[in-house]
Structure formats: C-alpha cells, structure tokens
Simulated scan of single mutants.
Amino acid sequence: MGSGVLLAALVVLWFVVLVPMVVTRGNSQPAHAGLAGSGRTLQRRRAVDPAVHAETERVSIDRGELLTSGELRVDVHAVRRRTLAGLVALTLLALVGALVWSPWLWIAQGVLDLAVVAYLLVLRAAARRERLAARRAARAAARAARRPEPRPAARPV
C-alpha cells in the first residue's frame, strides 16, 4: 500500500509541476531573457557547434491575414475544444471503469482529473493573453486613427 501511495504522489507532482512547465515553455519571454538560463535547473550545459546551432531571428506572423488568405487552416480554438473534450471523455471513462471494473482505476481517475484542471488553467492563461493582445491592438488602432494624416507641403510657384 505504501509504494502505491508514493507512486500516486509522484504522478500528482509530475502533473502539477512538470506538465505546466512543458506546456507553457516559450509562451512568455521574461525581461531578463538575456541571462542565459540563470534560473533553469533542468538545462544541461553543452558545447554546441555554432555552424549547426545558429541563432535565428523571431518573425511575427499576422494570423488574421493568414486566415483571410487561406494559408492558415488550423483553428486553434477547435483544437483546444477537442483536446478538452477528449480529456473529459477519458476522465468519465476512467470513472465508469473505477465504479464497475477495478478500484485501481481510481488512481487513473485522479490523474485525469488533475490533467483536466491543469489544462483548464492553461486555457485560462492563454485566453487572458489573447484578451490582452486584442486590447493592445485595439488601443494601437485607436491611436493610429486619432493621429492626423500628414499634409503635403505646399509648392512655391
């Protein structure tokens, strides 16, 4: 019984700590991003070949333009809904299995419950970031609309 509880605790900690860290990796760049890995404890330092691992520049992509042109065919919100529906379906399946078939499935039920909660928190953070980006874009558009258009200089005759 003790090893099962220990295994369950390790799985819970894995979902609570490591899964959100992997899911949110690269979403936000901190202000001190220039400090190379000062806070990363899981990163190994290796000598890399600069010819193979060259620095690349960041490119901003206008997803709205890609959607209107037809180049972007992935609906992120539909993918998120399908993922959440799949997690909820697995959770309900584990619940039915735990009630009907084997009590050991309660562990899977608990893990899946934690996965659903963690995914909902990730979706909530993503929605918050999207709302902030939309507000910034709206403010920038309002500022651009208020800015007077430059008048052409009068030509002397």
Rank of each mutant, 00 (worst) to 15 (best):
V22W: 01
V16L: 05
A33V: 09
L112P: 05
A125I: 06
H32C: 01
D62I: 00
A108E: 13
A126E: 13
H53M: 02
E71D: 09
L120K: 11
A9K: 13
A125H: 08
A134T: 08
F15P: 01
R25S: 08
E65M: 07
A154S: 09
D49H: 02
P148E: 10
L72G: 04
L10F: 07
T91L: 13
V22S: 07
G4E: 15
R40T: 14
F15I: 12
R155V: 13
L95A: 15
R80M: 10
V11C: 05
V11I: 13
W104I: 08
A140M: 06
T68G: 03
V48T: 09
L121G: 14
D75H: 12
E57A: 05
A141T: 08
A153I: 03
V111L: 06
T68S: 11
V88D: 08
A154W: 00
V117F: 07
R136D: 10
L6K: 15
L114T: 14
A31F: 00
V88Y: 06
L114R: 14
Y119L: 11
A8L: 06
T91A: 14
V96M: 12
V11F: 02
L6R: 15
L121M: 10
A154K: 13
R135D: 13
V16R: 10
R40Q: 13
Q43P: 01
L132T: 12
A98W: 06
P148W: 08
R40V: 06
L35D: 10
V16N: 12
G37Y: 06
W104A: 14
R124I: 01
I107D: 10
R44K: 10
A126W: 04
E71F: 00
A36H: 13
V17E: 14
T83H: 10
L18A: 13
A54L: 02
S69T: 08
L67S: 11
S3D: 15
A126R: 15
I61C: 06
Q29K: 02
L92I: 09
T56E: 02
A108F: 00
L120Y: 04
T24N: 10
A118S: 08
E57K: 01
R129W: 06
Y119A: 07
A94Q: 12
A33F: 04
L13P: 00
L99P: 10
L87T: 12
L10P: 03
S60N: 04
T91I: 06
A145F: 02
E55A: 07
P103L: 11
R25M: 03
P30Q: 03
G110M: 05
V74M: 03
P150F: 04
R143H: 10
L42V: 08
T83W: 08
R81V: 10
R40K: 09
V74P: 01
L132E: 13
T41S: 11
E149Y: 03
P148I: 09
R73N: 10
A133W: 01
L6F: 07
A51I: 01
L84P: 02
L72Y: 02
P148D: 14
I61E: 00
A85Y: 03
D75M: 11
L84M: 11
L87E: 06
L95F: 08
A140D: 15
P20T: 11
R131F: 04
L114W: 05
L92V: 15
D62H: 01
L132Q: 07
G86H: 09
R129I: 11
E55H: 01
N27K: 04
E149M: 03
G26P: 00
V74E: 02
S38Q: 12
S3V: 15
A47L: 02
A115H: 08
G37L: 04
